[in-house]
Design a protein around this nucleic acid. Structure first.
Lengths: 365, 365
DNA sequence: GCCAGGGCGTGTTACGTATAACTTGTGGCG
DNA sequence: CGCCACAAGTTATACGTAACACGCCCTGGC
């Protein structure tokens, strides 16, 4: 019954020796001894730098022995020697957002294919983690992928001198080594065109009350489209993020003085879900009395009734592209500023407005 | 007078030297030189092991100089020396699940307070990451926190000999160093009692089609409660995870031969959202015609109409408790097997059954 | 007057790896 | 025949840190 009682058989008594780990690690020297070569040869072979330095036969022996012994390189030692960690930091506004969880997933998947790791740094507003990523992150970092939404963390990042890839940043602010963007403007244009095509003219934009390029560009694109539609009236109702905030904002929009909007164009699916609740509580049917649109195409979009017309963002691909760009920067390769396409997903929450017969044909006015 | 006065800012040209990094790192030796002490003294002071070895005055000087120079210890070197990485691995079935994102957040927050880091390993089914966490994770690990839902990754973990804390594991399977559980059984009992208290007798359990203790225990607890209620009939309808799977399962349950169930008790909120859609498409009102309950209390629970009666799981605290247990194990401290309480959250998706007047014992309901 | 002992520090070493620099044997070629 | 290029290795070294093993000085007790 000696479960907890670790036998204290003297591990190492060498002066300055490190405390012995539970399982004696297999080192490259062990492999070298077993294979009858020097440690340097092992390093060369396993590092795939043996061409012209080690004979193919011995290289094969080394690989075989390493596998049989279950050798795993000590990453701390490697990092100490090379100065690289093969670890990237992903800075997101809040992990509990499904969108950023998917961005992480994509980045981590691609990273794993290249023996890279990804650690997360949700910025303070979301989670209360310490303000400086470099105090709290236990890993040393080769580079950073940062969402432009994580505004408060960016200041600390800029000063750190780390290779930086920005996700969805303002193209006019080229402080980053590279940038990857979603074609948010196109998504917003498609939504606006979809609604005006159905006949909507009085549209209220439930605008996320967050200072970020990704939201600013929506507003601009909407205004651009509606400016070309005779008789279209675009109003703006600010909303915080979250279901309840969306509900309150939609209530305000739907009860504002003047003619009621026939469509609520929401900055994300979560706000849209709240908007649906507000409409229903006012006795309005969706989409017969009022159309509602979202943005992002989260799982939530098909969980509500009716399912949301929204814009699908390729979140995993977004994370992958960010990671790819970072690895390119680290390799010193030229970085391609990528813009990923998005797609309108029409569902049940949009329909022609109730007064479509009168309004759609009316020219101007 | 030190004879080895290296030219400052001069990249090393010594044989075997590591490639110069872009930003010249400040090392403990730099701090030592600037503070007029030895490197050993710096290590002692900053490691808070200086009592009786360094005078308080010099210790203060060292701390000040370190701060002024912006010294940050090289974590790779420290790990190489100590054999510890201060990094834990959190194994979850799928990060895109809001529940596990919150678990991660809690674990990471507590970890940061103790200079620990947390890296994620979403198991393959969720994300397609490589099957072995130790091939893909770029960080060496001190220990693992694993959800019992990540069943396929557990086999690899057991063999690794790493300290392991299990989240929501079967208490009868004590292979882990420590275990932290949610009181799932109590939550299920509260739900069942809530429904029978409202008068429901024909209840169908939309049971997640996943082999995991957390789901198995729900079924057992429900059966226990309903066995004590005269006339209660509990049926079981398996369902995969996801909104659409829940919708299909609920459709099957509501159109099965025999009297229709008056309540659908779903294994999580997402299945419940699907169940609501199925009911509505069959022309049934919620909760007047059929009650629906969820589990987890995700953001989704209040995004749907009506809002879901569900069981709130303290996800962040769960992650915190797991991390706390792991750190205790690493310290060799005794581990307290924690069980965290859960709470029923009654909302709009439950009400007395339509035939409550006939069926329930209480008059005038 | 001398030694014990504690306070205050420094010198040195090893962690495991990657790679520059060196060594040795062999064949080709002027 | 002498020399060089090249293959096939090995040796040595440094990355930055933590901590062991000593030294030195001062104080106090006998």
């Amino acid at each position: 019954m000696t479960s907890h009682e670790a036998a204290p058989g003297d591990p190492r008594q060498l002066p300055g020796g490190a405390p012995a780990r539970a399982a004696a690690r297999v080192t490259s020297r062990d492999v070298a001894r077993a294979a009858g070569v020097s440690q340097a040869a092992v390093s060369l072979v396993l590092g795939d730098k043996w061409r012209g330095r080690v004979s193919p036969g011995k290289a094969e022996v080394v690989r075989t022995v390493a596998r049989e012994l279950g050798y795993r390189p000590n990453l701390a030692a490697r990092s100490l020697r090379t100065g690289r960690t093969r670890t990237a930091l992903l800075v997101v506004p809040a992990l509990t957002t499904e969108f950023f969880a998917r961005v992480y997933t994509g980045a981590a998947r691609l990273a794993a294919d290249h023996d890279f790791g990804v650690v997360l740094y949700p910025s303070p507003e979301g989670t209360g983690v310490a303000p400086s990523p470099f105090d709290s992150a236990s890993a040393a970092l080769d580079g950073v992928i940062a969402s432009s939404m994580a505004a408060d963390a960016l200041a600390a990042l800029r000063g750190a001198g780390l290779p930086l890839v920005m996700l969805d940043s303002d193209p006019d602010d080229p402080t980053a080594a590279a940038a990857v963007n979603l074609d948010i403007a196109d998504g917003a244009r498609q939504l606006a065109t979809h609604l005006t095509g159905l006949g909507h003219r009085r549209i209220t934009h439930l605008a996320a009350d967050v200072e970020s390029w990704t939201f600013a560009v929506r507003a601009r694109a909407l205004a651009d489209v509606l400016a070309d539609v005779p008789g279209a009236v675009l109003r703006r109702q600010p909303s915080a993020l979250g279901v309840d905030a969306g509900r309150r904002a939609a209530h305000a929009a739907l009860t504002a003085p003047g003619p009621r909007p026939t469509a609520l164009l929401c900055d994300d699916d979560i706000i849209a879900a709240g908007a649906c609740k507000a409409a229903r509580r006012l006795g309005l049917r969706i989409p017969q009395d009022v159309s509602v649109t979202g943005f992002d195409d989260l799982a939530l979009a098909v969980a509500v009734e009716p399912e949301l017309t929204t814009v699908r963002l390729p979140a995993e691909e977004f994370g992958e592209a960010g990671m790819r760009a970072l690895m390119a920067v680290l390799d010193g390769a030229p970085v391609e500023a990528a813009t990923l396409p998005v797609a309108l997903v029409p569902r049940g929450s949009t329909a022609p407005p109730p007064d479509a017969g009168h309004n759609a044909a009316r020219p101007g006015g």
